[in-house]
Amino acid sequence: MMSDAPLLSVEDLTVTFGRRGQEPFRAVDGVSFQVRPGQTVGLVGESGCGKSVTSLAIMGLLPQRGNTVSGRVDFEGTNLLELSTDDMRDRRGRDIAMVFQDPLSSLNPVVPVGVQVTEVLERHRGMTRKAAMPVAADLLRRVGIPDPDRRIKDYPHQMSGGMRQRALIAIALACAPRLLIADEPTTALDVTIQAQILALLKELVEDTGTALIMITHDLGVVAGLCDEVNVLYGGRIVERGARHPLFRDPRHPYTNGLLGSIPRLDAVGERLTPIPGSVADNLPWDHACAFAPRCSQPIERCTQVTPVLEESFGRALRCHNPVEVPR
């Protein structure tokens, strides 16, 4: 089903935040990746590595002031970064939709959930509130909310966390977008609910052929869901690959470290090995590998020369001293 022409092609995306009295800060630093129609692509990395900023830049939702965005975000051949705010408004929610991390704060507390679903239909489908209501109820049923005709009148605080996230997914999918961006959609939920929501997302994108960008700091989430995974560190992609090869033999010490810190059911008794240090130890990318201070196997070159992202056979890697593939 997947065609080769990319649906979304992010090229050299850079987002710089100006900070008063300090050097400008590049939260996203030359990121490039592609999403083909119907494909599920993961964007993985620790807190602060630029995942949300990347997604907000694609959506055109960064704050109006205090940042500069460069590069290209081609969606079906149009560079979204060059669209006027009104044209972008027409596409958001219709062509590209987004699900956010915290389902309680992401819903308006003083508007019934049903209206929060219908308003997208009213906006992009030109439906009346009345005509949109049954459609909204259907959408809520599809995302697994029981008794949707009653639930549609509920306010967000009357729903459980999992149900709210389901409602947000219904809102995002209301206009059958071709791309869905989910920014840590399960982080704020209980573990059991997390699994349900992930299963739901997987089922929905498969049924509807929607492409999905799954943003997470949890490789476990990616493992069950994504066709391709981009690993971000300090605003740059450090490794990319199809799910199985990447998980089987991670080449970047950071990816390797991330894999080492996921709890595994089949490895009882084995110690988890978290990556030492924190993002605060980062070196600037300009003259070094930002990850070097935390790396398990740094060589001299790592603190002297910026590694470049090298592609071969569908894998991309930015590392001077990659992890050896066990033979």
Binding site: L61, R89, R91, M98, F100, D102, L168
Partner: peptide
Amino acid sequence: DYVRTAEAKGLTKQV
């Protein structure tokens, strides 16, 4: 966050 959600839905400025 819900204002960002509303923006992500592409709603009009008035709404």
